[in-house]
Design a binder for these strands. Structure first.
Lengths: 118, 118
DNA sequence: AGCATAAGTAACTAAAAGGTTACCTATTTA
DNA sequence: TAAATAGGTAACCTTTTAGTTACTTATGCT
């Protein structure tokens, strides 16, 4: 997964209403934008834009059916991120080590750097 | 974890350079902003701002030591999100079911809604 | 045919993000 | 003590986000 794609996913998730949209679509696969409309405090247009953000991040997939657009959750990006982060931050996600801060362990001294002026 | 806090975490992660900062701090716990400076294409001030974003999201913790500020990774927010999402999207994260789209399963018909004009 | 509905586009506004330069403060250390 | 260094603020600029209203398009139904 490219960094830009990962940006898109995290940014898409960085909005509570968008997360709620995912929840709703998961709970009602195949629902349409119109169905979600009442659930949010903003206009239909704003809703459509949020859905676009989720689609760009590939968290949602949609297909046109008649005059409606039906929405489906796509969990692949979530799975890829999960994999990536359980690999890179392996022990950290695990939750088995419940130390609050990483510093408790190996704490390195800040490197003494060369002076710049020479 | 409050929705706003979760927003902060996801938004903080939605930038490749900030993710790289986390990687670096994880690899060098206790390092200082100055140590990270050369690693990024932007100015020191920009770096400081990014670090603030990560601190606001509580992904980084810092403590002043002399004239330096030492940085530490805090994995708690990651763990909390991981928990939340493995609960809510439980089967989805798992990766065991590798269906590409969720729609393959229970697909509900979009609800026929009451007409508005009455 | 003709109206109601679902969706999409355009154009605009306000606020937030991401960056900059210039300047200030506080510790080291030669 | 004085210079170099690490960090922090202020003020500003540009781009992106998030929202709006107004209008258009296309489908479905009576």
């Amino acid at each position: 997964m490219l960094p830009d794609d990962m940006d898109a996913v995290f940014l898409a998730l960085g909005h509570r209403d968008r997360r709620r949209m995912l929840d709703l679509v998961r709970a009602h696969p195949g629902c349409c934008p119109r169905d979600l409309e009442d659930q949010f405090p903003f206009s239909r247009i704003a809703l459509l834009k949020h859905l676009r953000v989720l689609e760009r991040a590939q968290l949602l997939h949609s297909e046109k059916q008649g005059r409606q657009r039906r929405l489906y959750l796509n969990v692949v990006p979530l799975q890829l991120i999960h994999e990536r982060w359980t690999t890179d931050f392996s022990s950290l996600w695990a939750g088995k080590l419940t130390r609050l801060k990483y510093q408790v362990e190996t704490t390195s001294t800040p490197s003494k750097r060369k002076q710049k002026h020479g």
